[in-house]
Design a protein around this nucleic acid. Structure first.
Length: 612
RNA sequence: GUGCCCAUAGCUCAGUUGGAUAGAGCGUUAGGUUGCGGACCUAAAGGUCAGAGGUUCGAGUCCUCUUGGGCACGCCA
């Protein structure tokens, strides 16, 4: 995955369709105001009176303004208003003037359709503008400056070092990585941060089992992936403590020795953590997840304490009889919370307070997004409120991107019942299925690296599936459905990219006109217009998804684009059409679709494939 | 008990800041392709948008209540 953010942004502008809509909205507003003054109506036009919508189909137009809200202000039937406004716009030939292209806008014609004022954009104008933009920027076409360089930190993943990643982490990682890439594509400056949960009693439990039963085995000696190796000992601990309840005490003893920096315990802890983290990092590499900074809880767990003490001195908190420090949040409906134990040791919130402050110091942000499961809503409500009361103004820029649980068709995953779906197992199953698919289609010779291609398809299928549901909703993960590569799936969209890539490779054998000689008026079919609009709109879709932290919008738009193209090239020849002018224009359209897919698929963690 | 989230086709999900006839995929049924890769394309059937009120010119979308489901409410993380 190229780090697009580092390649510079030679396509630095607002998304085209946002500009077009804004300018048309302004024109319609000015025209309505003119109409009002002609009618001697002295009233203010409410700012939300005009909203640009999309008509149900392109025959009606490309931008729609429902005029119902104007009826009251103008005391006229909205259909009459629509007629009159359309006339005024057309007779002046205002059409939001200017030469289309290069960040300029696109003209058009107004029509009244009942109470709706519809705008039919100048098709050759928009098409020319899009083709020019894509040929200049390539896949970077979908990038924009919509978020104007704001500094956004994204925290996600946050694994434990006592077990490997499972399906729930995969949703978290997919969301965190996708949101980061979307923000970057929309012009923000993004810093991805991870927080490794590498301390606590659960970590010591796997250590104890290994210590007592491990007999010096290692991941290397057993051939086990290193995070799974550690996870196995965590499972062993639970078996052990069932037959020997005192094992829990011995694990607690390990924790005490760890906190006292007992050299032997720390040594073991370091070794097992290294195994766990190395294994988890392998999974990150396989799924394309990466971080700019990694924080370790073992480093940060003490850092919140000073803040709590200083808050206590300032009277923000209070001390209980037994010495524990509390915050009273009942006035905002959040109850009372302990922030520091009586023995002075840190809690989860304590260290999150310290971590947030450290992060702001390390990299002052305009916004910090925590990608964490919805179970922790309460925790983050408390965290943000406490930071605000400590006087940190940036506390209001903290945002919990809360996502729903991943369930199986049978219900919730339960570790005790062994129904937890392991991330590596799932990936390798999917990869195997993708490989079978390639072999069964006899395409082994066509793809340069079958292992890599199979994995890219598997990762694509998985991420597409996980991101197609809105983040805040719980979702059902049906393994049988996720392995399907047909219909509304990642591989389907990848396939469209591969098909066009194949066409582009073959185009060398055909005569094609240079870009500047292409006659865009030859792209006159309705489906060509809809395709070009889908391409034109993608930067705005990306910007919108970034602004709302919702990759599922992009998933839907990609599927729509792929499906439209699939239908189009099924019904119409592109490379094989006889007329060189038509052929060139259609190939330019196909290329613009390919570049759009190439630029957008990675934003939802789906690799773009030239061949599959 | 209190608070938060969710409820759309048989199943899994979309549904633009409230706007024109509620859409996909899977599954079911019936079809298509002398072509640039069939991981394809077309069509049919399938809906009381959980229920009841309300706001509005207009509600799947906003408000209230009810029902059903999930989560949280630890000196765990």
């Amino acid at each position: 995955m190229p780090l697009q953010g580092l390649l510079g942004n030679n396509h630095a502008s607002k998304p085209l369709m946002i500009e077009v809509r804004t300018q048309w909205t302004d024109l319609v507003r000015r025209t309505v105001e003119r109409l009002m003054s002609e009618m001697d109506i002295d009233a203010e036009l409410p700012s939300d009176a005009l909203v640009a919508e999309t008509p149900p189909n392109s025959e009606l137009g490309d931008i729609a303004f429902p005029l119902f809200p104007l009826a009251r202000v103008l005391r006229r039937n909205p259909a009459e208003i629509a007629e009159r406004v359309a006339e005024l716009i057309n007779e002046r030939g205002e059409g939001v003037g200017g030469e289309p292209g290069a960040g300029e806008t696109v003209g058009g014609q107004a029509t009244a359709a009942g109470p709706y004022l519809n705008i039919k954009l100048d098709r050759p104008g928009l098409i020319r503008s899009v083709l020019r933009g894509v040929s200049k920027a390539g896949a970077e076409w979908v990038r924009s400056t919509a978020l104007g360089g704001s500094r956004i930190m994204v925290e996600f993943s946050c694994p434990n070092t006592n077990k490997p990643l499972h399906l729930g982490h995969l949703r978290n990682d997919a969301l965190g990585e996708s949101v980061s890439r979307l923000l970057d594509a929309a012009g923000a400056s993004v810093r991805r941060v991870n927080l490794i949960n590498d301390r606590g009693i659960h970590i010591c439990q796997s250590m104890l089992a290994y210590l007592e039963l491990g007999e010096g085995q290692t991941p290397e000696s057993t051939g086990r992936k290193s995070d799974h190796f550690v996870g196995d000992w965590y499972v062993e601990f639970h078996k052990l403590s069932e037959r020997d309840p005192s094992a829990k005490d011995r694990a607690a003893d390990l924790l005490r020795r760890w906190e006292q920096d007992d050299a032997e315990v720390v040594e073991l802890w370091k070794r097992m953590n290294r195994w766990a983290i190395e294994g988890i990092e392998q999974t990150y590499r396989a799924t394309g997840v990466r971080f700019d900074a990694v924080y370790y809880e073992s480093d940060t767990y003490r850092s919140g304490r000073d803040e709590i003490h200083s808050g206590l001195e300032r009277g923000v908190f209070y001390r209980d009889d037994d010495g524990a420090i509390w915050v009273d949040l009942e006035d905002v409906g959040l109850d009372r919370k302990v922030l520091l134990r009586a023995d002075g040791t840190s809690l989860y919130v304590t260290q999150d307070i310290g971590t947030a402050i450290a992060r702001y110091r390390d990299w002052p942000f305009d916004r910090l997004i925590y990608v964490v499961a919805s179970e922790q809503r309460y925790h983050f409500a408390v965290l943000f409120t406490v930071l605000g009361r400590l006087g940190y103004e940036w506390a209001e820029n903290l945002f919990h991107l809360s996502y729903g649980m991943v369930n199986l068709p049978e219900g919730r995953m339960k570790s005790r019942q062994g129904t937890v779906v392991d991330a590596d197992d799932l990936l390798s199953d999917l990869t195997g299925l993708a490989k079978n698919e390639i072999v069964s289609k006899g395409r082994e010779a066509e793809v340069d690296d079958i292992e890599r291609t199979s994995r890219d398809i598997a990762v694509g299928a998985l991420h597409y599936y996980l991101l197609s549901t809105s983040p805040n909703k719980d979702m059902v993960f049906d393994p049988a459905e996720s392995i399907s590569f047909a219909g509304n799936t990642g591989p389907y969209v990848q396939y469209m990219g591969a098909r066009i890539s194949s066409m582009i490779r073959k185009s060398e054998g055909y005569e094609l006109l240079p870009t500047e000689e292409i006659d865009v008026s030859l792209l006159s079919l309705p489906e060509e217009w809809d395709l070009m609009k889908a391409v034109a709109d993608m930067p705005a879709v990306v910007a919108n998804a970034a602004a709302t932290n919702n990759p599922s919008i992009v998933v839907a738009a990609l599927y729509d684009l792929a499906k439209q193209f699939s239908r189009y090239y099924h019904d119409h020849p592109i490379l094989t059409v006889n007329d060189v002018g038509v052929r060139s224009a259609r190939m330019a359209l196909a290329r613009s679709v390919a570049e759009t897919l190439k630029g957008t698929l990675p934003l939802i963690g789906v690799p773009f494939l030239e061949r599959m």
